[in-house]
Amino acid sequence: MKEDKLFARSKEIRQDNWGRLLCYISVTILLLLVVTIVYFISSKGLQTFTKNHVNVWSFLTTADWNTSLDAHGHADIGALALITTSFSTTMLAAAMATPLAFVIAIYVVALKPKFGQRFVQPVIELLLGIPSVVYGFIGLTVLVPIIRGRFGGTGFGILAGALILALMILPTITSLSIESLRSVDPSYQKFAYTLGCTHWQMIYHVMLRISAKKLMIAVIYGIARAFGEALAVQMVIGNTVQMPTSLVSPTATLTSKLTTDIGNTIDGTLPNNALWTLALILLLISLAFNLIVKGFTRGGEAK
């Protein structure tokens, strides 16, 4: 081998180095962003407890959102009503959307694959693309009056929020479920028929069972999306911080409180810091959802 060739700096090598450098830079920026966001929200959110001396425990377990200070400079501020409403709205939405999503997914994958792929799936993807403000508007103008007429009250509340959220996460859960059912190896279906399965037994005992974990993940993604949704919920939830007494009593969620109030508070004051604390709670909860998904994916396939 010629020596000059062995030590030559080729264009390809340079390209290789540049490509690698570009990747490192991008990843570094990404990591820095995540770290700064977490740091920013935490430092702001923790000020409620460090600077304004609100008790952490009482913040999480009382339901009054009272940001005015008493004579000793203390405030009775609690996020329990918000947390409760957030969770109940989300869970109710997931409970309504999940069965429907699974049935649609089974239809698209196993019953009418051609029709499903050509018509049903595009419709679902269309639903995914509708902006949340439109959902909220429909909720406000259509859903709330109906609920008011049927169940009394103002019509605003958990029921309206959950219905709108269910509609919004339906396409998310459905398309993820379709993907997970599709990923079941067709040879398992063949084997199932060989062993004397009916069509429904094949779907239930083979497809659903094999993709059970992935379906769980689909639901968790839906829940996470519902939990973080602010705008549409804010339009139908009522925006009154009080413990929900029924499905139709006006209340507020963590996200709706944030969007409603963030423009009306002064930076550095308790009302503002308290909102940052809500943001911190949201961050921690979505982190928890992420960890659950991670735990599921690491578990591998079903037994």
């Binding site: 040879s187 398992y188 060989t194 062993l195 094999i210 396939e301 079903a302 037994k303």
Partner: peptide, 13 residues
């Protein structure tokens, strides 16, 4: 009953 070319037991026990 039928046994196929590629063994494809279910991912069960």
């Amino acid at each position: 009953g039928m046994v196929y070319q590629q063994p494809t037991p279910f991912p069960f026990s």
